[in-house]
Every structure is written in C-alpha cells, then in structure tokens.
Write a protein that binds this DNA or RNA. Structure first.
Lengths: 339, 339
DNA sequence: GTGAAAGCGCTAACAG
DNA sequence: CTGTTAGCGCTTTCAC
C-alpha cells in the first residue's frame, strides 16, 4: 500500500514561526497561556505550511487514539432490512465528528469474527466501543469486558437486568408498547394481537411485556412470533388470521413486520383500519410513510440514540469499570392512517 | 476520554524471550531469516504476555496506517432508502478485514463536511479512500485529487469519461439496461417506458442511454424522471399512466423505484405482468423478492463491487498518480414474476 | 542470523 | 509565558 507523502512537522512549523516545538504544540492544541503575538505567528506558519498534526505520533505519547469502534453484528437481520443502523450510524457520526474522533467500523458475520473483533478491541487501538443490540447468547460482551475497553451498548443487553456497570442507551420499549396498545384499545378494539420481534433480543421481549401489561388475559393465540423482517411479519399475520379470524387490531414489534402484516391483511381482503387496525414501532420513515395505508406507529429517536451513545462513551467514566449509566429515551405515538 | 491500560511492549517480549527487540520485531512481522528456535521462543513470549503491536508506534516509523477511509455522501438518497451501501460496506469490510486494515467511516451531510473530509484525507491519516458515487457537481473529487490520497470510486465518476488516472469499480449499467429492455421486447411489449434515476449520477444516465439504445424512436413521453426512491417511482409511474395509458412495460432504473411503480399500477387496476410488465435494476433482495409481484430485475453484484474496490485500493498503484484502472462488472437478468 | 542504536513526530514535565 | 529535554513503542540500517 502506498505511503503518505512527506508532510511538514511540528519542527518545521516551529522553525518557520521562530519558536520552539512546545509552543507550536500548545497553540495547535488550543492550550491557553501563549502570548497572542506568538500564537498568531504560529497559526500563520501552520497555514502556510499546511501543517496537520501526525496522529500516530500524538497517540504514541498521549496513549489516546481519538477513535472509537462501532461494532455491528452483521447477521443482525435489520442491517440489510431497514435503515435502522444507518440512522444510528448517522447520529454516532455526527457526535464523533464534532469531537474530531474517528469512527472505525467493525462488521461481524460469524463466530470467527468475534475473536477477531475481541482481539482488535483488546489491542488498545481505539478509545472505546459502541456495540449494537446483541442477542442473548452473544459471547462478545464477555470478550469486551475482558478486554477492558470502555463500551456503550445500543439497546439494553440481556444480561444487564440487574445492577452492574453496564452502560447503554435504549428507548422505552415497554412504555412504547403501552402507547401502542392503549391507542388500539382506545379505538374500541378488543381482540388486539401482537407480532413479536426475535425474542432473544431485549427490545422484542420488552415490547411483548408491554403488550401483556395491558392485555393481561389475552388469548395466547393472539401473539405470533416474528423476527423484525417483512417475511416474518407476513407469516405471523397469516398465523394470526388463521387462529383468530376475528382479530380486530395488531401491534407489530416494528414497522417492517407491520408492513408485512398489512400486506397479508390486504391480500386477505381485510380493510385497514376499518376491519383491523395496525400499529408498528420505530417510525422508520421510508417504511412507515410508504406503507399502505401509512402506518400509525411508536416513534423512537434512533438517530438521537446514536448520538447519545457516542456522547456517553466520550464523556463518561474512565478506566475499566466506569460508573454504570443507562439512558432510556421516551417514545411517542405517531398517528397516521393504519390505526 | 479514558486512556488505554498499560500493555506489554516489544521490549517486554524481547526480555522474556531473551532476544533483542529487533528479533521480536522480525518474528512478529513474519520476516524470514530468524532461526526457528528463536522464533518459537518469541512466539511463546508473545502469547504468554498477550502482546499486541502498538499501531501508533508502527505507523510513526513506517508511515503507513493500515487504515482506509470510506466516504459516503449522506444526502445520497439511497443511504437510507435501500440496503445498497450496507451491502457494499460488507464487501469492503470483508476485504479489509482479511488484510488487517481498518475501515474508517466518513459520513457527509452538507457542504461544510466536504471541507472537513478533504482536510481529513489530506491529513495523511489513512492510506487511501473509497468514495461512493458522487453527483456531477460534487467538489470532493477535486479536493481528494489535491490531497493526493490514493482513491477508488464506487461507480464511474461523471468527469471520468475521458482518459485519465481515475480508478473505479462499476457495473455495466448500460449493458444491464439492454438486458432489461431486450427482455421486455422479447415478451412482445412495444410501448416500453423507462423510469430514470437522478440524472446527475452516471449510473442513472447510463441506464437511460441503454434504454434509448434499444428503443431509438421511443416517444419521449415514455421516459419519466425518478430519483431511485419509492416516492419518485410512484410519481413517475403516475405521470407515465397519465401520458401514455397504453404503456405495456416499464423498465425502472432501480428496484426501489420499480416497487413504487408496482404500487401505482396496482392502485390503477393494472395487472402485472399481464397488462404491464415491470423490470427493475439491482436485485436488492429484500426489495425485489418482497415486491408484489416479485420483481424481475437486473442483478448487479454489489457486495463484490465493494470487495473489489478495497482490493484495488490496497493492491494498486502507489503514489499520487496511480495507474488508471477501471473494473466494470457484468450484470445478469433475474426472472421473477413481474416480467 | 542477531543485536545495538538511531530516530519517526509529538507531548509533557521541568526549568528558566 | 516559553524553551529544553526526555521519551512514547516500533522499525530499520548497520555492525558483529
């Protein structure tokens, strides 16, 4: 691979400005306590020479990297199914950019990748890691913990139920489910079904719990397993229609599976919302707005969650066992036409 | 931000193995010419200490970073609309991972970001850049060129028509369009319409050109502008039906806009493919397979394109003006039910 | 073959 | 306030 061209060093700037390297360093790093006259000279020299600090040299001495890893488990259905991660990445990117921190993307596909990612994180190449909603049996958290890398999770990890020092950002999945079901019930619906997400993820479990909170005596046949995908939503809806043809409302665990449900309902000749009201979750615009009919859904601030994750990582505790911190963002019902 | 914990150095490994730092370095970097006995000792010490080389220190002397930037223009409609970039990222990630090179993700949103990204690339923090399909007036190529960073583009840049040293990976957009239109004509369709992509991108222009190649005398009213989005596809289809109610086939510039067309056709009571045959482009699985009916489309190997981009960057020429190289991958028609 | 020594470019005490 | 001085951990001649 090509080498970088020779570039001006601190030394060169110092020579040009007629000051010492230390002074240049101070100016470049915005430290106070340099006489304005000198600082101006330095800034001019920097500009004239097109000086850019060498990150490697800086890291070597500061032992920081101004880089964080974003770890995404690729098998994650959502990565290719809806823009969820793209949005979260945008939030993360904004925050990191604002602080001049690099985003190192680590995509995982299989078990071998866990080891590789673990090694990378343990290698001390980044200052921290942002890790997305793992499934319950994922070995990564253990590896990360062992590596001692400051980490913030996206979505509550399954093992974080008790106390502990886990940091994560999540939305109020359970409360959001309440909003959805309450809305449907408020519409006069009595046979409210639920299409779940993959139940090895806490977000799906929490939404299911929220549904059950408000429908305590509901027929179990009104709950059908989905997996956050369109196909999963379709299958679940078919099962639902099969088992309870009298269903008059559906709360789907995300917008994509709600879209699947809409399709099956349409094919079955049920009118939405007249015959069956449907509520989704996420407010994934390209999905919810383009659904037929447009989806009433529970909005979560995905981009904001990403931004918060990054902010928490950069701002938060130092060392191996940072103070625990959880942020749970509120959700909001967005009414469109499906319910 | 937290600092990395103290970690074993080359020096420590050398001491443990009873050799010099130079020898350890040679073993770690796989250089030949170290007696096997010593090498074994070193490897053991490395393992026992859990030694991982310090990239910053290495970069400082080698002037390489083992990192490449992936630049994605965020306003790019596709980023959130379909999994196009996610797929390409996966291909890139696979290749980079295999070579132990980091993926630094740079998301751009506005004009200010151009400057920031340009500065970053010019800063010599990465060994190269992978840049995605820019629009015609994008200032980034100029900035990149000025920065002298080895770069491979995803999708032919608009200004690369002539000769030059531009490197890019693309699919045969024009040939793919031929496949699509030829198929429709082969089905006996005579009033074949085209829904374009955004015409400030070469992929969209090339597909339009391909359409025109095979429909030289086509009524201009059979061509409607789209923008690769679902909404754009819907609007275009409505215009088409309005202007030419007798249309009997549609070639849409991508699967997402084809889905939009399908929706409008369905709403208009046209049967697909009996009344109107529809062909898309991309073979974006979650879109094409889930369309109603499933889309016949022109497949391009998106993930492979990503992999190739990375391979080309890592393998290719060195220095500011690497040998020009373009790779254009073939496309293939995938028949489903829409045509 | 292997080791000794010289930096890569920068920051961080410590003097002055 | 500013300059001097030591390294950070690694690769890379150059001797041995």
């Amino acid at each position: 691979m090509p080498q970088a061209a020779a570039r001006p060093t601190l030394e060169a700037v110092a020579a040009r400005a007629g000051v010492s390297r230390a002074t240049v360093s101070r100016v470049v790093n915005g430290e106070a306590g340099v006489r304005e006259a000198l600082a101006a000279k330095v800034r001019r020299a920097v500009k004239e020479l097109g000086y850019v600090p060498n990150r490697a040299a800086r890291s070597l001495v500061t032992r920081r990297h101004d880089a964080v890893a974003v770890v995404i488990a690729e098998p994650e259905t959502r990565v290719f199914g809806d823009p969820f991660f793209a949005l979260q990445l945008r939030g993360i990117s904004k925050e990191l950019t604002a602080r001049d921190v690099q985003l190192v993307l680590l995509l995982m596909e299989g078990r071998d990748d866990h080891e590789r990612v673990g090694r990378y994180l343990a290698g001390g190449h980044v200052d921290g890691a942002l890790v997305f909603s793992l499934h319950l049996d994922d070995p990564l958290p253990g590896i990360i913990h062992g590596a001692g890398v400051p980490t913030v999770f996206g979505g509550r990890p399954g093992w974080a139920d008790g106390a502990g020092s886990v940091r994560y950002v999540d939305c109020d999945n359970r409360g959001g489910a309440h909003q959805a079901v309450r809305h449907l019930v408020g519409l006069g619906r009595r046979r409210v079904a639920h299409i779940t997400g993959p139940l090895d993820q806490t977000s799906a479990v929490d939404r299911l719990d929220g549904y059950r909170d408000l429908m305590p005596g509901a027929d179990p046949a009104l709950t059908a397993d989905g997996d956050f995908t369109l196909a999963g939503g379709e299958q679940a809806m078919r099962r639902l229609l099969d088992r309870r043809p009298d269903v008059d409302a559906v709360f789907a665990a995300n917008d994509v599976s709600a879209s699947g449900a809409l399709r099956v309902l349409r094919a079955a000749g049920r009118r939405v919302p007249q015959d069956v009201a449907v509520v989704g979750f996420d407010d994934m615009l390209p999905v919810a707005e383009q659904a037929e009919p447009p989806l009433t859904t529970v909005r979560q601030e995905i981009e904001e969650m990403g931004r918060l994750m990054a902010a928490m990582l950069l701002h938060g505790g130092q060392g191996h066992d940072p103070a625990a911190a959880r942020v749970v963002l509120p959700t909001a019902l967005v009414r469109r036409e499906s319910a």
